[in-house]
């Protein structure tokens, strides 16, 4: 499902004397459907960079990143957007808040955009919001004004609304209480069971051990020259 070959990434800081900072080199791994791979490595090793490249948010300098057969290092923007809509989900800790849109609509939007009926989308959204213990009286409000924890859970609900065949998880359980953490881990297990290929960053060691099938230490991709 996810296939990375010969991946290299560096940042060129044109406005600071064109300094080139190599970040990744010779990155390669594969993730099969129903498999969860945890990225490890110390802070700054490039875990988030790999995730962002997988999502098409960062541009790789070299190599190939195939997701569901599409090489996103070379794809057109609309192809990447279609991939994100249909195939590739991303759950981060932070909600990019769309102003004025009610919580229920925020969560059901991914389903509507893949052509699910209004009814089906709402039903799934309600289910997820209840499971993640967002009080029902908040559903019609915009999440802009919610607490950080509530926003994070709304974001998780949104990320799991559609059953993506490939899923990127960036510390999904960070700063959640025990009950909600349990819910999120269950959601991840459900996604995996339904065939999703998952790449995640988990600082929560217990969660990592429970969810991940194997670990990839991104330090292996650290450029030799810089090391």
């Amino acid at each position: 499902m996810i296939k990375v070959e010969n991946l290299a990434k560096s940042f060129t800081l044109h406005n600071q004397g064109a300094t080139v900072i190599p970040v990744l080199e010779d990155g390669a791994f594969e993730v099969q459907p129903s498999e969860c791979v945890a990225l490890t490595g110390e802070s700054g090793a490039g875990k988030s960079t790999v995730m962002r490249i997988l999502y098409g948010n960062y541009l790789a300098q070299n190599g190939k990143v195939e997701i569901d057969g599409l090489d996103i290092t070379r794809a057109e923007p609309r192809e990447i957007l279609a991939l994100r809509r249909e195939t590739l989900g991303y759950v981060s800790q932070f909600l990019r808040v769309v102003p004025r849109v009610p919580t229920l609509d925020v969560v059901s939007e991914p389903l509507l955009s893949v052509g699910k009926s209004e009814e089906e989308a709402r039903e799934r959204a309600c289910d997820l919001l209840s499971r993640l213990r967002i009080p029902e009286r908040l559903w019609e409000l915009s999440p802009t004004t919610f607490s950080g924890g509530e926003q994070q859970r709304v974001n998780i609900a949104r990320g799991f609304a559609h059953t993506y065949p490939a899923l990127l998880l960036d510390e999904p359980t960070a700063s959640l209480d025990a009950q909600n953490r349990e819910t999120v881990l269950t959601l991840i297990e459900e996604a995996k069971a339904s065939g999703a290929a998952i790449v995640g960053i988990f600082h929560d060691l217990a969660a990592r051990e429970r969810i991940a099938d194997r670990e990839i230490n991104v330090t292996a991709f650290t450029p030799k020259a810089a090391a």
């Binding site: 044109h14 406005n15 962002r52 948010n57 960062y58 923007p77």
Partner: peptide
């Protein structure tokens, strides 16, 4: 040119980097 979030989060050209920063 590119995907909006990619250009804004990982700008490649000197001018875009200046613009974003």
């Amino acid at each position: 040119t590119g995907l909006t979030d990619q250009v804004l989060d990982d700008p490649q050209h000197a001018y875009t980097q200046l613009l974003v920063s």
